[in-house]
Amino acid sequence: MSMPAVKTDAAMTALPVASAPVVTMTPKRAPQSEKYIKMAREAAVRVVPPLIVVALLLVVWELICRRAGSALPPPSRVFSDTRELIFDPFFDHGGIDKGLFWHLSASLQRVAYGYSIAAIVGIALGTLVGQSVWAMRGLDPLFQVLRTIPPLAWLPLSLAAFRDGHPSAIFVIFITSVWPIIINTAVGIRNIPQDYRNVAAVVQLNPLEFFTKIMIPAAAPYMFTGLRIGIGLSWLAIVAAEMLIGGVGIGFFIWDAWNSSHISEIILALFYVGIIGFVLDRLIAGLAKIVTRGTAVN
């Protein structure tokens, strides 16, 4: 993946000075190839700087940690130690001795459950609070207090209530991600312009039509802000929660690796956790972009 990008950049960096006058003088002769060159150049501008920084960091890390007696392994040893985990993520030796794929998918599943419930409940409650002054007066102070409780503080309580690790983890995900969804949805609903309400009144939309045709699209940009914060928080919370409840999951994988002093495995797991968190965030952002096509501009 990274090699071609670096190559393109090497080619690009040499080009600009020489090609700049050519671009202006022969715009019609090769518009297609010019376009590709421009696209490649833009991609290179985005991809190359982070690659260089990562490479530099790896070098520095290698230099610092390669000495004998260093507490953390250098990147070269991380790679050699976790070779099997990297190249065979699908093994399953029973119990919790599974490949990283299974751990990650177990964690993602919990997040999917907890987050879906949070999205539904959050949008419903947010709509209620945004629409009704009395609901806001009654519920908002409660939300403001509850949302400051750290996710893990809910875990013992939910373990006591559910008497099982799995639903408790899902509950922790839910309770962590629901607040930003509620609050942002409520703000979005409250900010629906009076004009749109007037239009709905003149056309005589019934409450259900008003909800689906006016409220949801008008408040969608706000809702997605909440949903995006929510997915980030739930991914933060799942790792911590799984460390405590045990079983299959990336959180307990990290904790287990620590208990058996496999520091390299921890580093590899952190890498995956970061990448997946990033992908989740992008997914919601991409979804937001598709759904709010019309509204985001205004």
Binding site: P193, D195, N198, V199, V202, A218, A220, T292, R293, G294
Partner: peptide, 16 residues
Amino acid sequence: GPDRAVVFQNHSLLPW
């Protein structure tokens, strides 16, 4: 009601 339709000053078209 639609028997008294309004043309609003700022058009009020739904942007989505």
